[in-house]
């Protein structure tokens, strides 16, 4: 039992885990996109840039102010969230009555600004961010070595995704949120401050991206370009899953990460395109997406 389909089990399991790690990021980012889209009717193109900002903030915090990993995990998402709230109040709120496209274009512009600024400051080569001491090394599972940090990324993202699902589906606040998504005017008439909820939703959604960025910092190279390539894959994930359901986003994100990882084992040439190919197939078979409802 050392080989699966002619592939050494070590390599196979390694790619599977790497796929799960990538899938965790897809899940967190597509979840944030779905929550924001539900409330604001805006596709947040800046999501990838804010994910990058989270990672960069963690790196800057460590190198300029000696802020460690755990504090970064708290502070960077907070900073990204506050930045998001400022953006929502100063810009996005004027676009809600217009065509959805303008929200996409504005956030695209924001993404260019963020990416350009960081690229001007730090160049395009990756910056190293070492794995925190607690997670150095690996677990020996007998059939494979599981790097501790990868296990933590998967665990943390599952926890965050589950917490988000729980808040939205099972709490009173979540009920208000769902009501405001369904019919903002009626919800407002019941005395719920909808604009405030919209603002906080955007802040929370982008904070999630910032959190994912900090998680990614030790796992990947921190670079100003890390967000823009990821966000396009996440768009494909969102098209495949549909933005109707929260659990759907999580499952689709993780699943596609795993599929991508396995493609790397069996047919490496297609590993960067497999998500897009799946998207094309889903569009042919089920245009609304796997968990989507056609509006």
């Amino acid at each position: 039992m050392t080989e699966i389909f002619g592939i050494p089990i070590q390599a196979f399991m390694g790619q599977l885990m790497l796929g799960l790690v990538n899938g965790s990021f897809y899940a967190m980012l597509s979840l944030g996109l779905a929550v924001i889209f539900g409330m604001l009717n805006i596709i947040n193109f800046a999501h990838g840039a804010l994910y990058m900002a989270g990672a960069m903030l963690a790196w800057m915090g460590l190198n300029y102010f000696g802020i460690g990993y755990w504090w970064s995990l708290l502070l960077a998402p907070l900073a990204v969230g506050v930045f998001g709230i400022v953006i929502e109040r100063s810009m996005l709120q004027w676009l809600y009555k217009l065509d959805h496209l303008y929200g996409l274009l504005l956030t695209f512009g924001l993404a260019l600004i963020l990416e350009g600024l960081f690229r001007d400051l730090y160049g395009v080569s990756g910056l190293p961010y070492s794995i925190p001491e607690e997670f150095a090394g690996a677990y020996n599972l007998g059939f494979m070595f599981l790097p501790k940090y990868r296990a933590w990324v998967i665990l943390a993202s599952l926890l965050v995704c589950f917490a988000t699902w729980f808040v939205i589906e099972k709490t009173r606040l979540g009920a208000y949120l769902r009501a405001a998504t369904e019919n903002p005017r009626l919800t407002q008439a019941f005395g719920i401050n909808v604009p405030l909820m919209v603002m906080l939703t955007y802040g929370f959604g982008v904070a999630l991206a910032g959190f994912a960025g900090v998680l990614a910092a030790p796992a990947m190279q921190v670079s100003p370009l890390m967000g823009s390539n990821l966000i396009i894959v996440v768009f494909a994930v969102v098209v495949i899953g549909g933005m109707g359901s929260i659990l759907g986003s999580i499952v689709t994100g993780l699943g596609l990460g795993v599929i991508e990882g396995l493609t790397k084992v069996f047919y490496p040439e297609a590993s960067s395109t497999v998500v897009f190919i799946i998207m094309a197939i889903v569009l042919l078979v089920r245009p609304a997406g796997l968990f989507g409802r056609e509006k």
Partner: peptide
Amino acid sequence: VGSLVTVIMGAIFVVCVLAFR
């Protein structure tokens, strides 16, 4: 301005969408 061109392009985007549709 080198790589700041991207920033300027982004800023034009933002201004166009907000005030100059």
